[in-house]
Structures are given as C-alpha cells and as structure tokens.
Amino acid sequence: MSFDASTARGDLILTRITKEYGDFKAVDDLTLTIPKGSFFALLGPYGCGKTTTLRMIAGLEEPTVGSIHLGETDITTTKPYQRPINTVFQNYALFPHLTIFENIAFGLRRRGIKDVDAEVNKVLNLVELPHLAGRKPTQLSGGQQQRIALARAIVNRPALLLLDEPLGALDLKLRRQMQIELKWIQKEVGLTFVHVTHDQEEAMTMADTIAVMNEGQIEQMGSPADLYDNPETAFVANFLGQSNLIKGTISGNDGDSIIADLYGQKISLPKKRSHAVDNSIYAELIVFEQNDDGVAPFNKGDAVNISWNPIFTFALRGDEDVTAGSEVNPEVLDEE
C-alpha cells in the first residue's frame, strides 16, 4: 500500500477528519476535497486548525478520526517520507549544514533519481537563483531562502505542494512580489498547491479556491470573489473585510428580493444573497454618506444618510454573533 502511495495522483480528499489533543479539538469533523491542479488556500486566524490540517496532509500528524485519500489511495497512516507530498515550511527549515545545491538535491538523492545535477539546475533557474548553488542557507536573505525552500520542494514534482505561511517572514514589498511569483510558478509547473495562511490578502491574491476555517471547521468555501461579495456567516464577513452589519427583520417579499426593515428603513436585498433562516437578519450596507459638513467623524447617536447598492449587500442569520471574526482580524496595516 505504501508502495503505491508514492506514485498516487489525483484530488486530495479529506473525509470527516478530527484531530484531538486531550480535550482540545484542533480539527473538528472536517470534510474537504482539493481538486488536482488547483491553488487552494486554507485561511483562518491563529488556532483555527489550518496548520494542523496541513500537518495531517503532510503526514506529520495522524488524524484521531477520519481518512485522507490522494486520488484512489488511502494515505491516512502513510509515513511522511512515503507520500508524494512536499512542504514549504514556515521558517523554511533549510538544512544549515548543506549547500543550497545539496538542500535542493536532498529529496532527489533519497529517491535515487539519476540526473540530480540537471534537475537541481533547472529548478534553480526557475527561482532565478542559479548563482547561489554553492552557498550555505545562512548566507542567503529571507526572500532567497524562501525561494530555495520552494525549489527544494517542487524539484520533486510532488502530487501536492503544501505551503505553511510561506511568506510570513518577508517584508511587505517582497511578499507582494512573491505572491505573484508563487502564482506564476504554480501555473508553470501545474502542481496542486495547498496554501495555509492567516493573511486574507495573500489568500485572495493567489488562490483559486479559499476555505475559511474557524475553530476546527470550515466556515465557507468558494472563490475569493464569492467569499468577499457574498459571505454566509458573520465570521467570514468580518474576517475578510470589516463589514457594517445592521440588525433588522424581514418584513416582506418582492419577487427575487426580500424586503428588510432596518430600524424603520425599508431596503430590498436579492434573495440569493440572503442567508437568513428566519425573520431576523443582519444586513450589510456598504455605502455610507457623511453628514453635511463632511469633515467631522461620526459619533454615537449621530444621524447619517445611508445608501446602498443591492448587488453589494448581503443578509446573514439574525442569531449570529455580529462581532465573530472581527476580534481575530489581523491588523491589515501592521506592516505599513
């Protein structure tokens, strides 16, 4: 079985995965399919279970319950070194005693690949660092180490490439540049990338599909645009961008739209953008208009003019915690 695992290809399927540490459920009954060839992001705040999920895919942790399949092959208990899966670690985890060349050649040599030189040089050219082959990792900058970590993984052409917060240690400018490069490399080599991050912007820029995780479960999964425009839960709405959620009730029905009553103001919302299950809702109205003077900031109790475009609004269940996700929203501007 393990012999087959190393050549397994196909979609990655997690079926009802749970991982417990004592009483703590890091991942809670998670089911997920990651299509072959996609750039998939697991997005969520610290402690949401995304890194644990990644480690289970890599084989560094074993699920308490559930199974992991790669295509037809069950890899739930396969050892990491027998999986056709490679990881770009958060701190890169380059081997400090080996040259850059030998770092990249490590996986090839273990698998007994013949033409190590050609493979390593090819991937060094891909990450545009062929001149660093003879150096040691400590002699490289953070951005260069990041590329070598990527090269060391993709040189093995794994069925799946896992990226654990790969850009977390880079400064903003370099991070932006690497986001574009990673996306480009993924298209170039055509591998399945699974990217774990807490940075919404990073996930939005690179991924085809994003799964937003919270407390060990997937809150919502979809394309970046879907998630941003039409979140289904307050957590997603707040985590992906500050939302202005206003409490109201559904008071009527108008063909494809619902009529909602927000503190006496009637608004209409497309039905397909309403995730309410009863009469009580939170509506998101994205355009505010300042009062006449246009300078003084709002104070509590001020009267404001509200306008909105129905296609940018959405309605959530009224029993949700309106602040969910906002407290864990990382400071987007921390690097600026």
């Binding site: 890599a58 084989g59 560094l60 050892k79 990491p80 070194y81 027998q82 899966i85 490679n86 990881t87 670690f89 958060q90 701190n91 985890a93 380059l94 081997f95 400090p96 490590f106 996986g107 273990r110 698998r111 060391r152 993984a153 093995n156």
Partner: peptide, 13 residues
C-alpha cells in the same frame, strides 16, 4: 531546529 528533521522526513528520508 526540529523542523529540519520534519523537512528531512518530508523529503523522502
């Protein structure tokens, strides 16, 4: 760094 040991396992060792 224990992560270098994990990386080694990840790279087929």
């Amino acid at each position: 760094d224990p992560r270098t040991l994990e990386a080694s396992g990840d790279l087929y060792a």
